[in-house]
Design a protein around this nucleic acid. Sequence first.
DNA 1: CCATTTAATCAACGCGTGTTGAATAAGGCG
DNA 2: CGCCTTATTCAACACGCGTTGATTAAATGG
Lengths: 192, 192
Amino acid sequence: MGTEAKIDRRIVKTKEAINKAFLELFSEKDFQHITINDISERANVNRGTVYLHFTDKYDLLDKSIEDHLNKLITFCSHHDNDEAHVSLISELQPVFEYFETHFLFFSSMFANRRTFVFRERMLQFVSASVERKLNDQKRRSAINHELNAQFMASAFVGIVEWWIQHDMPHPPAYMADQLWRLFEKNDIYPAQ
Amino acid sequence: MGTEAKIDRRIVKTKEAINKAFLELFSEKDFQHITINDISERANVNRGTVYLHFTDKYDLLDKSIEDHLNKLITFCSHHDNDEAHVSLISELQPVFEYFETHFLFFSSMFANRRTFVFRERMLQFVSASVERKLNDQKRRSAINHELNAQFMASAFVGIVEWWIQHDMPHPPAYMADQLWRLFEKNDIYPAQ
DNA sequence: CCATTTAATCAACGCGTGTTGAATAAGGCG
DNA sequence: CGCCTTATTCAACACGCGTTGATTAAATGG
């Protein structure tokens, strides 16, 4: 299936050099402090050339993310022989091992303090709230309370985020009801 | 409890002006395109003055977030009479209504496309995976599949994020086991 | 191999950033 | 009030950004 549209070798070479330089720098210093100058210098291309292929360093980051996530997805799919698409949740340990192996990349990825503050603060508040509730309820469980709280809080914040970003496709009452059921499933009951 | 340490009125006045100007601009245009010039101009202070109070516009954003989240938390606490700290999860509808009321702020907050790409791509992959699984399992439930998938996927990604950011406090096997239990609780079974 | 196409280079542009040091103005306090 | 402290202003700095237009160099395809 020749979908390769005969790309000029110069382009390939340049893009590769830029990506390589970027990834090197990314593992060396904070993304915030990487300049286009740094990248072009290390990649041995003109600064303007970078702008011929990427709109800015964020675009470069986006495309790098795309690459790495595709690798993760490929890994997950490969691991399960037949049903490629369900492997992520049917084989949890390999997934975590994958993260462990590529720790450097993923930790850099999650480390953008600046813009994550909002989620973090909200997450922190909700997870503390859930954990307190779990401890109060005192029903023994095989599940680590801290993990459970983090799990539920992430789910909660994720739902809110989804709801907002999709322009509130359901009314608050519906959302509350649904979320209620999900919480119940996980042994978290609003009333004491 | 006079914890007010006699702050110079000039400082208060300036900070207020800057914050007000920033919030106005924030609701008007993309954060990316707000310049310190815009802010200082609208706040009627010298550009340098902004730097006397905030390290950069991200710092300004952080502090603005802090304020707004405190308002949300206060709202949640206020709503429940006694046990202030559990209200977020015991009264879900008011919470969603709060988000609805302050939609503009929260949607701006969640709209930082650039840096959220990573989470989003991962979320997208996992939620699709979960939703497929839910549909396959065909056990009828009162819970919206799309919501349920989003819920579980956010929880999953949140756990991974937490694990990475805390330098992998548990081995992959433990994480897999715990997550396994949490998935089971929510009727998601790895094996078909 | 040579003509054509187009990628990469280079210099220069206006603009925003974050910082500095000296001058100015406003608040705090006896 | 009037001194003293300090927040604010102002001009200027080096630097990074993203863009532009002309020039050079390399790959492509007949």
